[in-house]
Design a protein around this nucleic acid. Sequence first.
DNA 1: ACACTTTTGTCGAGGGACCGTCAAAAGATG
DNA 2: CATCTTTTGACGGTCCCTCGACAAAAGTGT
Lengths: 402, 402
Amino acid sequence: MPDGVPTQRPSALAASGASEVFQVLRDGQPRTRAQLAQVTGLARSTVAARIDALMSLGFVAPFGGAASTGGRPPSLFALNPGARVVVGADLGATHAIVILADLSGRELGRAQQQIRIGDGPEAVLGWLAAAITGLLESDGRAADELAAVGIGLPGPVEHDTGRPINPPIMPGWDRFDVPGFIQRDFPVPVLVDNDVNIMALGELNASWPGVADLMFIKVATGIGAGIILGGVLQRGAQGTAGDLGHVRVSRGGETICRCGNAGCLEAIAGGPALAAALSEAGDRTLTGSQDVVELVRSGDVQALQAVRQAGRDIGDVLATCVNLVNPSVIVVGGALAQAGEHLLAGIREVVYTRSLPLATEHLRIVPSVSGQNAGVAGAAVLAISHVLSPEAIDAASARLAG
Amino acid sequence: MPDGVPTQRPSALAASGASEVFQVLRDGQPRTRAQLAQVTGLARSTVAARIDALMSLGFVAPFGGAASTGGRPPSLFALNPGARVVVGADLGATHAIVILADLSGRELGRAQQQIRIGDGPEAVLGWLAAAITGLLESDGRAADELAAVGIGLPGPVEHDTGRPINPPIMPGWDRFDVPGFIQRDFPVPVLVDNDVNIMALGELNASWPGVADLMFIKVATGIGAGIILGGVLQRGAQGTAGDLGHVRVSRGGETICRCGNAGCLEAIAGGPALAAALSEAGDRTLTGSQDVVELVRSGDVQALQAVRQAGRDIGDVLATCVNLVNPSVIVVGGALAQAGEHLLAGIREVVYTRSLPLATEHLRIVPSVSGQNAGVAGAAVLAISHVLSPEAIDAASARLAG
DNA sequence: ACACTTTTGTCGAGGGACCGTCAAAAGATG
DNA sequence: CATCTTTTGACGGTCCCTCGACAAAAGTGT
């Protein structure tokens, strides 16, 4: 092989550093050039050049001026949220929510629809693609302003490829190329993840900035956890991390679960399980989490106790999880968590008595504040963090230069 | 690139370049300049310059020549393990093992001693410092050849500062500045971590290269787990991640644990618990894991069954952990694991029936092959990976140039 | 209005990282 | 022994990043 082949340069990005300045600005707070120079340790002139590049990329915009401290007043710069838009989609078993968001995560538009995930990927993703087109149009955005799409799916997902893996409640989706389908209409990065994972991401972003170790527990038809450790979403070897619904609990006895095993957590603490138990005991017909929540809100003591007991059962499992991964925050969400503080009370009751004092000392167990929105918001965050990642910014500024 | 890489690394350092070549060589395999150029995508001349720098740093050395393919035979280069040495120390409740190792992890010398960790940090670390001096001398190494020290301690450790945090069995060690003490004698980086964590590291390094998600379970007096996810050791918010000994298990009943709670896993499946149960049932006096192991080896059926049941109890907890973090390998070690395959059989029995099929499909549950050595080996690996990290190599080559 | 402060934009210089070339070296081949 | 092949080491050159300096700009205070 000849030595001097003027072919391609595989790793030309090297220490471009162009993103160094930008990463400081990512929090949305406006800063002066001088501040940025101090934080990054770069010379002022270098920072100025970087700012120029980022401004012509559109990712950064001037933000008025600050008060003078005796001399010429500095000008402020901040992330320009409107430069691009992203889409976040939360696809559930029976519902779909899609939002259009700017780069700060602010919602610009929303579409939702009752769907059946079992109708298969073409039908559901076809609707999604149409919804995205509609949202872009409503907001007056050109197609090339879309920077990325984040999607949450109710099942295990191989995040690297964006394909669902053996999803139990998504017939027809197994190993379907979700990004490929969406990219036929929108040639942008498509990030796919488990729905609980994106909820964890959404909640972390919305309410717990700076927290590195967070668990999000979704309690609805199924029971699952999204785990963020060291600031990184943990998906496990097959992408099934966090699947707590089919952990065996002692109180489960011989109750048969839809998975075929006996004594699963889901079979005694999931929404349908509670509904069935309450129906039997009270001579009424409840079918899902929503019915249970309404009953609790109506003040039904039996329902209240059932939810609290479900909390204890979940807490039983969570106590083990707390000892295992030692998070600093546990956020409880999902349909059943809408039933006031009862579920949370049950969880707290058990976790705080069962887990090690050292592990619970600084542990906070809190309800989800985003509620229904955690999913879509998290999907948008997933997309945004991809678009605004150092690698992506460096690549963009390299394209600008070249 | 259709689909992108997520924001995996919390604080990704830009590709500095100087270490790029070296990281390829880290596996110890000899390579030619041409191979390195191809792998890294750099020009041959650039690679040659890098190799020169690394050679004058001592980290890389020539490795003879390879067979010619018709022209001038290429010369090979490889990691030079003898350039520096590191120390790995495994401090237990009653024993201490220290090894001197080269940069490939090969053991160059060893010292061990019966200690009582409760004698306090000055006594124990004083012995350690003396042992290090002795090992360096025996191997004819100058003090400045020592590059780093890795230490494993039997309790929670705040890894960033190297201080034990509220360690239950280490009176006098709470928040003691372990690195500071060692650095009085040896001015090198001192990395401190939980003993189970370093065992996980040691086992990963020795037997599972390339595996990203591994759990190491230590079963001895206590029961703990070292968790590696995405290739990164997970220490949790307070550094207590992996503390499985005091998880409550259904079969635990009201057995009181040394921690004060009832029904802890450790209280029915730990070494002392088994010893006590077997003593009572068989009219003999066993005190710890070692006695139990000997009894099993002697063919005692009762002991064998007890160990197998302990495996089941541990498997009960591990089933939850498998669902939660979805590892691809579980390594079982610790004193009780020396009792043949019985413990493992019990664990497998339960985990494979209780966990989700998808999570166990590719899950391997195996015995530790390093055994007693996992700890010290892991401590050495911890030290080595610090010394050979891209940041450290870049810093060293910058010092060389400047 | 004038001096003083602080920020800004521009510009040239320094330096490092990489690259491609070329001749010499070291064997293989016949 | 001559030729061919492949690797090696040295060299010159380019590109780009980054820095420091300097002068202009924009306010503040007297």
